[in-house]
Computed example of a mutant assay.
Amino acid sequence: MKDYRWIHEYCLNRFGSAEALEARLPQPCEAVELKALGDDRYLSVMSLRIFRAGLKHSLVDAKWPAFEQAFFGFDPQKVVLMGGEHIERLMQDARLIRHLGKLKSVPRNAQFILDVAHERGAFGNLVADWPATDIVGLWRYLTKHGCQLGGLSAPRYLRMLGKDTFVPSNDVVAALAAQGIVDRVPSSQRDQATVQAAFNEWHEQSGRPFCQLSMMLAYTVNH
């Protein structure tokens, strides 16, 4: 595989200067910021990610104030009490995206967040304390214990929160394939470990956060 220097030089050549490159790169949140987020915000963003999946993001985002109202500000203590009849009433609410499976996921994920909060004091402690050098482990934890967080939803959820993670987008997977690291979306535990090891190596070489390395790698794909 190519080393970090190659990736950096490629991006510099593409954008013309270090300043132009840096302006395009995301900054992850600090652990203290992630811990300051309330459990309601973790549930809201989790639900937003689930409803965005397969839909135009701007459409979902425009409806989100109505979701905040319908789900009591995503307070997990209140949402977890929403039973089947309540969800059926929401299916008649024209302000919402009336997808039964996704609506049902909200109280289920409220229970997930409450379980983690009971164990760790707050859901944010789980997210903030998980090391980025094993971020695929957090993906798997979210997929296993959460509802409708499979595929790319877990890494995209973490990126939305500001947690440092790489995201195996189409361009990132294409770049990984070009370097002979993996030849498909890393869905198996073995492939995820292989990709994690590559990103760990680039992180050690550069000191950059994983979200920046992920975006820089995507920029090495020609369009």
Rank of each mutant, 00 (worst) to 15 (best):
A132Q: 04
S214H: 05
Q196H: 15
A154D: 11
V221L: 00
C211G: 08
P186E: 06
Q69G: 11
Q179C: 11
R159S: 08
L59I: 07
L217C: 11
L34T: 06
P131S: 06
V60G: 06
V32F: 00
D191S: 13
P28L: 03
Q212Y: 09
D191N: 06
F112C: 02
P209D: 13
G137D: 13
C11F: 00
D115T: 12
A23C: 15
R184I: 07
G207Y: 10
Q189L: 12
E201T: 10
T220V: 10
K56F: 03
V32I: 08
V172T: 11
L90A: 09
A23H: 12
R14F: 04
T220F: 01
G146V: 05
W139M: 12
S47P: 07
A62C: 01
Q111M: 08
F51H: 04
Q179K: 06
F199I: 12
A197D: 03
D39I: 04
E33H: 12
F210Q: 01
Q212K: 15
H8Y: 07
G84E: 14
F74T: 13
L55S: 11
S105I: 09
L161V: 10
V136T: 15
Q205T: 07
T165P: 05
D75S: 06
A53V: 00
G162L: 01
G121N: 09
V106Y: 01
S214P: 05
R108W: 04
M216C: 04
F67D: 08
L176Y: 01
F67M: 09
R89C: 05
Y4W: 02
V32S: 13
Y4P: 02
L59D: 06
D61G: 02
M215V: 14
L96C: 12
P26N: 04
C29A: 10
K2H: 01
Q189M: 04
G83Q: 13
V221E: 04
R49C: 12
D129G: 15
A117D: 08
W64K: 09
M215D: 12
F15K: 02
M1F: 13
F123S: 12
F166D: 07
A218Q: 10
D129I: 14
L81T: 11
N200K: 09
G101T: 15
A177Y: 03
A18R: 15
P65W: 11
D40A: 14
D134I: 04
V167Y: 00
F199Q: 01
A53E: 06
N109A: 09
P168E: 04
G151N: 02
A218H: 03
N13T: 10
F166C: 11
H203N: 06
S44M: 05
I87K: 14
